[in-house]
């Protein structure tokens, strides 16, 4: 549990961090350290340098800009869980990450940049159509959630870029959302996690956005579930039927399994948790 030698530099600004990333070969950004430091201690990751952005106040905290909610990359899970006015699915998921220590040190940006397939936030942000604000040597760019998460521990972030914020829309009237999760009993990561957002108008589902995670290399948009619900009345039967459609969204060949839950079991559980997330979302949509 002792990492090999590495350089440590504290960035004074986002621009400084980008410059330092450019100057240091094989450097990693350090924010809350709750994903990176454990793998370094196990010598599974051996970066030459850590660029500490943990004290950059400018990218920490939650700003409400009209119906845009800007979540600074350094915002902790505890801050997200406690904040008012966020989509329920996000607050709910953030409150279930790890334990109080993890939630008070771990950051939203660090979590999504790490892109652990069992992590909760990638699934939630996929369902929320979040947009990821990225700063790099060539300026700013914005990437949609569907394009941000690429594969196991892999995102659209380049080695010299810094994720500065994740932007989601506030929940509109008639909208409800929810997160449902089967906890890994050891790690508390998701064996299966499902995030759902529904918009109800005149008793019908006007729009649905659903994602599942934990069982696939990256958070997976449940397009078949969304299609099955859109335009339908939201009731127990329609939700149950739509939830089954998640099996069409999953590629059997890439499902993850381990000693806690086989791929086949997770495949069976996906509709259960999609159904639970949708049920909560529908109730909350009023």
């Amino acid at each position: 549990m002792y990492p090999p030698k590495f350089d440590y530099q504290r960035a004074q600004s986002v621009a400084d961090a980008i410059a330092l990333l450019g100057q240091n070969r094989d450097a990693k950004l350090l924010a809350g350290g709750h994903s990176l430091l454990p793998v370094m201690k196990l010598r599974l990751a051996q970066p030459d340098a850590l660029i500490d952005i943990g004290r950059l106040a400018g990218i920490k905290g939650i700003q409400m800009e009209g119906d845009r909610i800007v979540i600074g990359a350094l915002t902790t899970h505890a801050m997200v869980a406690a904040a008012e006015g966020l989509p329920t699915v996000l607050s709910e998921a953030a409150g279930w990450i790890g334990d109080p220590q993890v939630r008070n040190r771990g950051t939203v940006g660090g979590n999504v940049a790490h892109a652990d397939p069992a992590s909760d936030l990638p699934t939630v942000f996929t369902a929320l159509h979040a947009r990821f604000h990225i700063a790099g040597p060539n300026g700013q760019r914005v990437v949609a959630a569907d394009d941000f998460f690429l594969d196991l521990f892999t995102t659209a972030l380049a080695a010299d870029e810094v994720l500065t914020a994740v932007v989601v829309r506030a929940e509109q009237p008639g909208t409800g959302s929810g997160y449902a999760k089967m906890f890994n009993p050891a790690s508390r990561y998701a064996i299966v996690g499902a995030a759902a957002v529904v918009m109800v108008e005149n008793g019908l589902c006007k729009a649905a956005s659903v994602a599942v995670g934990g069982l696939t290399p990256r958070a997976t948009r449940a397009a078949a579930v969304e299609a099955a619900l859109t335009g339908q009345p939201l009731n127990a039967d329609s939700i149950a039927a739509a939830a089954q459609a998640v099996k069409n969204d999953l590629n059997m060949d890439e499902l993850l399994g381990d000693i806690h839950a086989s791929a086949a079991y997770r495949y069976e559980m996906a509709p259960v948790f999609v159904q639970r997330a949708l049920t909560k979302a529908a109730e909350r949509a009023g």
């Binding site: 050891a186 990561y189 000693i259």
Partner: peptide, 18 residues
């Protein structure tokens, strides 16, 4: 939990559920 080669698959608190 050991696999058949003797590898300890529950060798951390991420996998050994206390």
């Amino acid at each position: 939990y050991y696999d058949e080669s003797g590898q300890l698959l529950s060798g951390s608190l991420l996998d050994y559920a206390m």
